[in-house]
Amino acid sequence: MSIEKTITSSTEQNIRSRLIGFFSDVTDLTRFTGRFFKEAIRPSYEFSEVVRQSYLIGYKSFPLVAITGFIIGLVLTIQTRPTLAEFGAESWLPAMVSVSIIREIGPMITALIFAGKVGSGIGAEIASMKVSEQIDAMEVSGMNPFKYIVVTRIMAATLMLPLLVFVADAISMYGSYIGANLKGDVSFRLFFNLVFNTVAFSDVFPAVIKTFFFGFAVGLIGCYKGYTANRGTESVGEAANSAVVIGSLLIFLLDMIAVQFTSIFFP
């Protein structure tokens, strides 16, 4: 009886401490987000650092995103073909694949790759800066580490992800064109016409808008996890890991919200 009581009370304590941890994390993250906007608006601006981070975050992610996009377009086309062929609707293949890629698969896959590569990188980098007391050193030397480290990275992530998605979508389409020609014969012009006869503004704009939020979420979580890491060296790995996990989860949550908004504004 007393053992059961002890187990129950320890479970309760565990749940309570987890809940407290979760809500205090939410409060800290909200405060962190507020501080980002405050620091982002207030001069001076670190433009050159934003460009450098854009290079590291955006340009350097391009090969990975391009390969993923190409494979997704190719595979999606090959996988969709048999089902459409059953209905005699193979001519709908470019239209169907393009809408899927532009609306959902392109932004989601790119954002998840981005969270994996960039989110973990930011988390680990800032956490290691904290462990090696570089952030403290910056504060001592009169610099604003939040502005220099956090604001620049979040801004670069927010601006670079949409651009990566444009490129990924275009490369996916090319992959899809190759996929369509593996077992069929579709000219590039016909493929192009079939795609743009189907794709509408209501497919493109919501997809573009949500990628800004995805980029912001990845950058924010990466920076937050790195900036609030403990002093120990193991916290670097923890920061990188949790940045990827929470960043990916946030992408799915934001996508769900985006779908609801899209259905309201573009019925």
Binding site: V51, R52, S54, Y55, G58, Y59, F62, L163
Partner: peptide
């Protein structure tokens, strides 16, 4: 880096 970001 700037040029590459610009091109991208």
């Amino acid at each position: 880096e700037r040029v590459r970001v610009g091109v991208f």
